[in-house]
Computed example of a mutant assay.
Amino acid sequence: MDISAITTALPERRDDIARLQLLSSSGRLPTVAVLGKYNHGKSTLLNALIGNEVFKVSDVRETVRVQAHESQGIRWLDTPGLGADVAGGDDALAREGNAREADIRLFIHAAGEGELDAEEQACLEALCADDECSSRQTVVVLTRMAQVDEADMAAILGALRQQTGDLPVFPVSASRYTRGTRENKPLLAGRSGVPELLAFLRECADEVTERRERSRRALGELLLEAVRQKRAACEAARGRLRKDMASRLAAFKHDYVDMRTRLRRELKGN
């Protein structure tokens, strides 16, 4: 399959084509990527999951490009926060990293923000639609749960589950987990929700090889069908062009014959 030719013919499918190239390569670790709004705790959560301060964490915007780290047999991707740059370039990088590289997507939402807003809902719906055809897994992670009291947390979780449907939802406190592990307080770390999320991610990682193969077959069929449709559209356009050219040529010939006839008559009359 000529990938460059397909990309030229189907520029709107460049993410699918890039994903298919990655799926066709071997030896790649399962990839977990975070996606969500700026300052909702994506980098902090990744550091907790990795068990080390790998990604920069700050109140100011730090993540402006896709960053990767390999640990525990997983490749972790930190992506720029959505909706924080006016030009939208960082949003494109975040979506591109998730569309092309991620096997498991963690959709991050801070508990204190309450329900998902319209932008987050649209993004999550797009991920779910992609999951169906790409055999990937999206997980909703409700961060900073320690900052919300239990009653409010229950209400937020109830509302969030109404918005997220059948997607798995994990409320976590990365700061509580980090403190518990650093200070050797297993009960504190255990109440953070992070161990449950880690266990779930390991189960998902074990399924990545099988999911990638299903995705590779589905993407290949999707792109082949897209190429067929593009070819059919080109053939139809070529047919219309030939018909139009034939019609124009016939009209030209008719006008030429008519003009020549009238000219001969005028010459005979003189």
Rank of each mutant, 00 (worst) to 15 (best):
M1E: 08
P11S: 04
R13P: 00
A18V: 03
L23P: 01
G27N: 01
P30V: 01
L35R: 10
G36C: 03
H40N: 12
T44Q: 13
L45H: 11
N47D: 10
G51Y: 09
R61I: 14
T63F: 02
R65V: 15
H69Q: 00
H69C: 10
E70N: 11
G73R: 07
W76Q: 03
L77E: 00
G81I: 02
V86K: 13
D90F: 10
A92M: 15
E96F: 08
G97T: 11
G97C: 01
E101N: 09
I104P: 02
R105K: 15
R105M: 14
I108W: 10
E113N: 14
E113W: 09
E120W: 02
C128D: 01
D131G: 03
S135M: 07
Q137E: 06
T138K: 05
T138C: 11
V141N: 01
V141Q: 00
M145V: 09
A146N: 13
A154Y: 00
I156F: 06
T164N: 02
D166G: 12
Y177A: 04
G180D: 00
R182L: 06
P186F: 06
S192E: 02
G193P: 01
L197A: 06
F200P: 15
F200E: 04
E203S: 07
E203N: 07
A205C: 04
T209F: 02
R211C: 05
A218E: 03
L224A: 14
V227C: 08
A233S: 05
E235Q: 14
E235K: 10
R240T: 01
K243D: 14
R248E: 12
R248A: 08
H254I: 14
L263R: 04
E266N: 07
E266W: 13
L267D: 12
K268S: 12
